[in-house]
Computed example of a mutant assay.
Amino acid sequence: MAQKKTSHRTAEEKAATAAKRDARRARTERARAQAEERRKAAKRKEQMTRFGLIAAVLALVVGGYFLVTSLGSDKPDTAPEGATGNYGMVVGDADAPKSIVVYEDFLCPFCGQLEQTVRDQLDAAVEAGDVKVEYRPLPFLERIDDYSPESANAFAVVLNESGPEVAKKFHDLLFDNQPSEEGPFPSTDEIIDLAVEAGATETDVRPGIEDMAFEGWVDAAGEAASKAGINATPTVLVDGEKVEGQTMAEIAEAMVGTGN
């Protein structure tokens, strides 16, 4: 009897041990499941936070863009005398068989490279009556420095006060003396000195250059270019078609038939 009783207790103990083991396994599984759920919840929270921050940043960027655009549109956008309705200046015979439009920024180094590549040939073609060119300065690089809109405004002032011939010389001098995108950037006095070198009278152009007299017009030029799908400088149109050249030589070839 004693032996049987002992065997019965052993079986009970085994059953209890198995039950404890199963319960422990169940607790472990529940703990793992809970830990996994907490991990997933934390990940979801992290993603939500990240996405929220991204959305907030995007909202600020987009909102800031429209705020700046709105502020810019409130400024007077009176055009300088001699400007076209497309925020540019035309040189050359109005009846020339070839029409070129150049969107440019006086701070853009690639615009400077294009000038170096094609200016002499382009000026010769204009002089021969083969080409007319409309230069449209933009403030696209104002995110880098105020020199971008300041130089475009100065160009407008010189055009208004001194006419297209002097404005073209000033245009060329701005590129001949183009600063690096890293600076240092020309002072207002230095910009005025270039205008005078081009043939402008200092007393005529200094007030408008110092006061950014055509800032609204310059802003409007940038907005119009963006709406027209112009998102880079230089952008060149030949007879209304955008030039897709990958190098300055290819763009020059399309403009005046030279690959120099």
Rank of each mutant, 00 (worst) to 15 (best):
T28D: 05
L174H: 09
T247N: 04
S226D: 03
E223A: 14
L237T: 06
T203F: 00
F170P: 13
M89N: 10
A220D: 15
V236D: 06
V205Q: 03
R206S: 10
K43N: 03
V126E: 05
H171M: 07
E142M: 05
V131N: 03
A15L: 13
R21A: 15
N231H: 12
P184R: 12
K45L: 05
F170D: 10
N260S: 14
G240N: 05
P234Q: 08
P149E: 07
P149M: 06
R119C: 00
E81T: 14
A94R: 06
P109A: 09
R32S: 01
E253T: 08
G129P: 07
T117I: 11
I230D: 10
N177E: 11
P80C: 11
N260V: 14
G208I: 08
M255C: 03
C108Y: 08
G82C: 10
A33E: 15
V256R: 02
C111H: 10
S99Y: 01
L107P: 11
I230T: 11
G259N: 14
A16N: 10
T233P: 09
V218G: 08
S7E: 10
P109M: 11
I191S: 01
D130L: 00
A11F: 06
N231L: 01
T258W: 01
L141V: 12
K4R: 14
E127H: 04
E36A: 14
K14G: 08
E182Q: 14
V68L: 11
R39W: 01
A83V: 13
D211Y: 04
G245S: 10
K227Q: 13
S73T: 09
A154R: 11
K169Q: 14
E215L: 15
G222T: 13
E241Q: 15
S226G: 00
M255E: 02
A195I: 02
M248E: 09
L107T: 08
V62N: 02
K14A: 15
G199L: 03
M89L: 12
S162F: 08
T203L: 01
R44I: 05
N160T: 04
D172Y: 08
E150F: 03
L141R: 11
S7C: 00
E250V: 00
F106T: 03
E210Q: 13
E134D: 05
A232K: 07
T84E: 09
